[in-house]
């Protein structure tokens, strides 16, 4: 794995050498012992404390109270909210929807992005064009994406059903059939966000030194052989990273599902992610305490998944 040092790019401003710095540390002579450092950190810390740390604690506090947005009275109820949550079938149902979405979106979002990057990296003409086409949707605001797809999915005049009819196939109720509800969100999401994973793969592919391919070619290795013996093995780490990022992003599904179904949760509630249940509980039913409790359980779940994945990817590295 000497790729990174051999390919370290002379053009980037990243000063690669850590030599002198390390030497200074060894001699114990701190170059940077300047006082007043706290003043650089303080502005950030104040904003961080006010808008992340405090709400985090405040939310934890709220989750022990029976607090409503409409009245000022609130009663300490201990762990009642958490106990109720365990027996709330809607929590489990929306959590399941979220898990299904995560599985259903992560697989195509990683696999298709990899294929796109591999194809573009082969050096065919029109680099600018391919990158633009695959990445541009990622730059669109979620509302733009959803408005476009609502129109494509629409029952009577939508493009998809128009094409299906043209092919002599039956129409599909993209936004009205409970079996399709979540799939429509998945299709839209894959189209919208694939560009991000595509770029990560592209960057990783460009980090593979040409010498490896030159050597392989001299040895007579064909395209497939080079793909499976050089490219894919060298992408293992990137893939682990892309999967982790994608799972964590997919679990936080809310915006597109909420807008696509105008807050209804989809046909038969088939596309209600857990964050939407938090939103509905807090901002529609005004049960702030209970909504905070659900948020916290979800938060713990995300941390657990992140830790498990960090462990797995570390093991696969060594």
């Amino acid at each position: 794995m000497s790729t990174s040092s051999t390919v370290r790019d002379p053009g980037a401003t990243a000063p690669g050498s850590t030599g002198p710095q390390r030497a200074d540390r060894r001699t114990g002579r701190s170059l940077v012992g300047g006082r007043g450092g706290i003043w650089f950190v303080l502005p950030f810390m104040v904003v961080y404390a006010a808008f992340v740390l405090w709400p985090l604690l405040y939310g934890l506090g709220l989750s022990f109270f029976d607090t409503s947005l409409v009245s000022d009275e609130s009663q300490f109820v201990g762990l009642d909210n958490y106990a109720r949550l365990l027996g709330d079938s809607e929590v489990w149902r929306t959590l399941w929807v979220t898990v299904l979405f995560t599985a259903g979106s992560t697989i195509p979002l990683v696999a298709i992005a990899l294929v796109m990057a591999l194809l573009v990296q082969t050096g065919v003409r029109g680099q600018w064009f391919w990158r633009f086409v695959y990445f541009a949707p990622f730059l669109l605001p979620v509302a733009t994406v959803v408005l476009i797809w609502q129109w494509l999915f629409s029952g009577d005049f939508g493009l998809f059903n128009g094409v299906l009819t043209g092919l002599g196939l039956p129409e599909v109720g993209w936004l009205t059939e409970p079996e399709m509800g979540l799939w429509s969100v998945i299709i839209l999401t894959v189209w919208w966000t694939i560009g991000f994973n595509f770029l990560l793969y592209l960057a990783a592919l460009q980090g593979i030194p040409d010498q490896l391919y030159e050597a392989a070619e001299i040895d007579g290795a064909g395209g497939w052989r080079r793909l499976f013996s050089i490219t894919l093995p060298l992408l293992t780490r990137t893939t682990a990273l892309v999967v982790v990022l994608q799972v964590l992003a997919s679990l936080k599904l809310f915006d597109q599902a909420y807008i696509l179904y105008r807050g209804s949760g989809g046909p038969g509630g088939s596309a209600t992610p857990i964050l939407q249940y938090v939103y509905d509980t807090g901002f529609v039913d005004y049960r702030l305490g209970y909504a905070s409790a659900i948020s916290y359980v979800f938060f713990v779940l995300i941390i657990l998944i992140a830790l498990v994945q960090a462990r797995l990817s570390r093991r696969s590295e060594s």
Binding site: M1, S4, L202, A203, G207, Y213, E217
Partner: peptide, 28 residues
């Protein structure tokens, strides 16, 4: 390996991102 785990951005991306100007691999 230690720098790699600690520093995914600079080790995996900056080199490639910097080579952007050179375009994709053409040796294959």
């Amino acid at each position: 390996t230690t720098t790699e785990t600690a520093n995914p951005a600079t080790t995996t991306v900056l080199p490639g991102a910097g080579r952007e100007t050179a375009g994709p691999s053409t040796v294959q």
